[in-house]
Design a protein around this nucleic acid. Structure first.
Lengths: 164, 164
DNA sequence: TATTGTTATACTCTATAACTATA
DNA sequence: TATAGTTATAGAGTATAACAATA
C-alpha cells in the first residue's frame, strides 16, 4: 500500500488513489509492475531480461522461426531482435541457420544447452509464480488468465472493427 | 493473436506460445501491453503520458501532498517527479505552494484548470475503457480487479515476510 | 518492388549520485 | 544528521530510417 507521512510525522497515512482505482487499467498497471519487478529479479539471476526469456522460450517452441516472426511475436521491431538474437547466440543458447529456399532469412533454433537452460529457468519462474500468487487458488488463477485473455482479445476485436 | 507466415506464404499460422501462456505473468504482460498501447493513444490527445496522468489525478485527490509522497505513490524516484511536476506546473494544471511549517517542501495543488482538465481526461479514459473491456460484463470486470489486487497484495505479503 | 536482416542514430523513461537549503 | 527538492549524467530499452542482399 502506498503511504505518506502525516504532519506530525509519527505515522503513515495512505495516499488516496480511489479515482485511479476506479480504472481497470490502473489496477492492471499496479499489479503488472509488481510481478514484473519480481520476475526481473528472478530472471536476472540467469542474466536474462523479460524479452530475452520470452524469445528463448518462443524459439524452443517454434523451431526454425525467423527473426521477423520473432519480432511480431514479441511486438518489437526487427532491429531490436537482431541484438536480442545476437546475445542469445553469443551465449550458445540458440543458433542462426541457413535456409535452403530463402537466402535472406535465418532459421532460429535452440541449442541443446539452450533447451536445458530454458527448462531450468522455467522451473525457477514457475516456482516463483507459485509464491507470487499464493493468495489465489488454482481456480482464481485460471479465472484471472481467462479474463486477461478476454481483455487482450476484446481489444483485437475493437482494433479490427476500427479498420473496416 | 500473434501469427507468422507459412512456407508457401499464402496464409498466416499462429506462433506457438503455449509454454509462455502457462505463466500467469506472460498473460498479464500481453494484456497490459494491449491496454497500455491504447491508453497512451487516448492520453496522447491530451499531451499526457501515463505517469503524468496518474500524477495529476493523485494531486487532485490529495491536495497539499509533497513531491516525495508523489514519488512513493508513483513508484518512481524523486528526481523524476521534478520533471513531471515541472511539466504540469508549466501547463498551469497544478501549482507548487510554500508550506509555512517546512520551507523544504512544496504543497502540490491542482489549479481550477487542472481539475477541469482532469475531469475531461477521466471521462475520455473511462469511455475508452468501456470500449476496451466490452467483452467483459460488469461482474467480470469487478472480479478481474479483485484478483489483480490479490496479486498486488499477495506480493506485498511475500516481500514483507522476506524482510523478517 | 517487397522483404530480411543489419546498422547507425535518436528518443523516452528512469535511476544514480552529488549538491543546496532547510530541518 | 536527515530530509526535500534539484541537477547532471548515464543507462536500458526501444523506435526510426537508411542500407545491402535477396526474393
Amino acid at each position: 500500500m502506498v503511504r505518506k507521512r502525516n504532519k506530525a510525522n509519527t505515522e503513515t497515512i495512505p495516499v488516496n488513489d480511489k479515482t485511479l482505482r476506479g480504472l481497470v487499467g490502473y489496477n492492471m498497471k499496479r499489479s503488472y509492475i509488481t510481478i514484473q519487478t519480481d520476475m526481473l529479479k528472478v530472471l536476472g539471476e540467469f542474466g536474462l531480461r523479460l524479452t530475452a526469456f520470452s524469445a528463448l522460450v518462443l524459439i524452443v517452441d517454434n523451431p526454425d522461426m525467423t527473426q521477423s516472426q520473432l519480432a511480431a511475436a514479441l511486438s518489437i521491431e526487427r532491429s531490436g531482435v537482431v541484438l536480442l538474437v545476437d546475445d542469445l547466440e553469443n551465449r550458445d543458447l540458440i543458433s542462426r541457420n541457413k535456409v535452403p529456399g530463402d537466402r535472406r532469412t535465418y532459421a532460429l533454433r535452440a541449442t541443446l544447452a539452450g533447451m536445458q537452460f530454458r527448462d531450468r529457468v522455467i522451473a525457477k519462474v514457475q516456482a516463483h509464480e507459485d509464491r507470487l500468487f499464493h493468495k489465489l487458488t488454482d481456480d482464481q488463477k485460471a479465472t484471472l488468465v481467462e479474463l486477461l485473455n478476454l481483455v487482450e482479445q476484446g481489444n483485437d476485436a475493437v482494433s479490427s472493427s476500427r479498420k473496416r
